[in-house]
Design a protein around this nucleic acid. Structure first.
Lengths: 235, 235
DNA sequence: CGCCGGGTTGAGCTGAGTCAATCGACGTGG
DNA sequence: CCACGTCGATTGACTCAGCTCAACCCGGCG
C-alpha cells in the first residue's frame, strides 16, 4: 500500500473507470492519500459533507445510529469503493458514520476539488449516477428482504454476500477477511446478537459455518445460498 | 391537464429545475404526453428499461414482487416526480412495477432521447445525481426504521408521510388523495393487512384517524407524528 | 339480488426479543 | 509469566408482538 498510488489504481474505481490516462492523472493530483488506523471514525453522521473518499486498502463500515441509540449497519465496503460522495453531491449532512474496521488506506478529495473534477471530466457525473443508482437498487432489494423474510434467511443472505465481497479462501472454506461481531451481524439484518448467535450455533452443528470470536468461516456456501433462496425452512 | 403542456410544467420537476427556457423547450420537444387510466401497469418489473417517465397528474405506485409472490410497496409518487429513470441510466432491467392508482397523465422520453438531452444539457446529469442521492438517503432511513421500529410506529410514520405528500385538506382533517387499501399500507411497512386494520381501528377510537373502504383521513396529525417519533408506546 | 372485494375481529401460535447467568479468549499491567 | 479485567459469545427461561387461521360483515356493482 504505497502512499503515492499509481493511476492504475483509480481505474479500478467505478467512478473513474471510463477516464483516459491524462484525466486519471488529473484526478490523482487533486486527491490526498491517508492511513486510517483500525477503529478510526473517518466520517461522522450529522457532520457537513466536505470530502469524497475512496478506499484503497482495508475495510470500512457504514452505519447509522437511530435517535434512541440503536445501530444499523448500512454496508461494508472494500478497496475501490467510494463513500461520503452522495452527501457531497447533494450538499446535505452526512447520513451515516464511516468507521475503519481494520487498518486501512484511503484517498480523498475536498468537495471543491471534486466539483472541479466533475466540471473538467463530465463522465464522472455519469459514473456517479450509475453507482448511486446501483446502490439504490440494492437497497430496495434489502428493504424487500427485511420486510418479508425471516431472520435466518436474512442472515444466510448477509453471510453469502460477505463471503462473496470480503471472502478469503481459507483451507476448508471462505473466511470473512475482517473481524465482525454477532452484534454487527445483527445490525446488518435487523435482529439481536442473541438470535444471530443461536442461528450461527445451529449452522455450526450442521457444518455450514464455523466461527469464533470476531471471525467467521463459511464452510458450505452452497447450503447457505440454499437457505437464503430456498422456499421452505431446512430442518 | 392539457395534452400539450407548457414548459413551466417541467420547471416543477427537479430533474429539469435548473434549465433555462430554451433548454426546457428542447426537453419538451423530445418527450411525449400520455394518459394513464387507473390500474394501468405502466412499467413492469423485469422488463428492459427503455423509457424515462415523469408524472404530470395523478398518482403512481412503485412496487416489487418477491420471488414467492409477496408484494412490497417501494413508494407512491405524485405530480412532478419521475420514475423509471434510474434503470435507464444504468442499463439494467426495471427493478419494480409502476401502476397508476388513479387516472393519471405522464410525460415520457425514450432512453435514446434522454441520453441526447443529457448530452446537450449536462446539468440534467447533476440533477439526476441529486435526486437519486436523495432517494438513497430516504431509503436508508426507511431501512433503519423497518429494522428497528415497531409496526405501529412505522404505520404512524407512513401515514404522516402520506398526509404530507398526498394530503388534501378535508373538512375535519387531511385526506389521503388516492385510494389505498389496508393491504397496500401493510406492504409499505412490512406487515399484514390484519395488523394494519387493528391498529387503524384503535387509532380511530382515539380520534387520530378516520377511515373507510380505501379511504383514509388523518384527523390529528400531531398525535400521529408523536406516535411516530415519541420514545415510548401510547396506551 | 347475489357476488365479490375489502374490512373487521377473535383465538391461538410462534419467532424472535428480553432478561439473565455463565463462559472463554485476549490483552494488559504488575 | 501470571492474574485480572474486559469484551464477545453462548445458552436458558420467559414473554409478547405480530402472524396465521378463520369466521363474518358490509357496500357497491353487475
Amino acid at each position: 500500500m504505497p502512499l503515492t498510488p499509481h493511476r492504475s489504481l483509480l481505474k479500478t474505481m467505478e467512478l473513474f473507470a471510463d477516464l483516459d490516462e491524462a484525466s486519471l492523472d488529473d484526478v490523482l493530483q487533486a486527491g490526498h492519500v491517508r492511513r486510517l488506523p483500525k477503529d478510526m471514525l473517518v466520517l461522522a453522521q450529522g457532520d457537513p459533507a466536505i470530502s469524497c473518499h475512496a478506499l484503497i486498502d482495508g475495510r470500512i463500515k457504514i452505519s447509522q445510529v437511530t435517535p434512541d441509540g440503536a445501530q444499523v449497519v448500512i454496508r461494508y465496503l472494500g478497496p475501490g469503493q467510494m463513500y461520503g460522495t452522495v452527501a457531497v453531491l447533494m450538499g446535505i449532512p452526512l447520513p451515516a458514520d464511516a468507521i475503519a474496521v481494520v487498518d486501512s488506506v484511503e484517498m480523498h478529495w475536498t468537495a471543491a476539488a471534486m466539483a472541479e473534477l466533475i466540471e473538467r471530466h463530465p463522465r464522472i457525473a455519469l459514473a456517479s449516477n450509475r453507482i448511486t443508482g446501483g446502490r439504490l437498487v440494492d437497497l430496495q432489494a434489502r428493504l424487500r428482504e427485511i420486510a418479508t423474510e425471516r431472520v435466518d434467511r436474512r442472515l444466510a443472505r448477509a453471510l453469502a454476500r460477505l463471503a462473496e465481497q470480503a471472502g478469503r479462501p481459507s483451507g476448508d472454506g471462505i473466511e470473512i477477511d475482517f473481524p465482525i461481531t454477532r452484534q454487527e451481524l445483527g445490525e446488518m439484518i435487523g435482529t439481536t446478537l442473541h438470535t444471530v448467535s443461536r442461528t450461527l450455533s445451529a449452522w455450526e452443528e450442521q457444518g455450514i459455518v464455523e466461527s469464533s470470536r470476531r471471525r467467521i468461516v463459511v464452510r458450505d456456501l452452497e447450503a447457505l445460498t440454499l437457505l437464503a433462496e430456498g422456499s421452505a425452512s431446512g430442518s
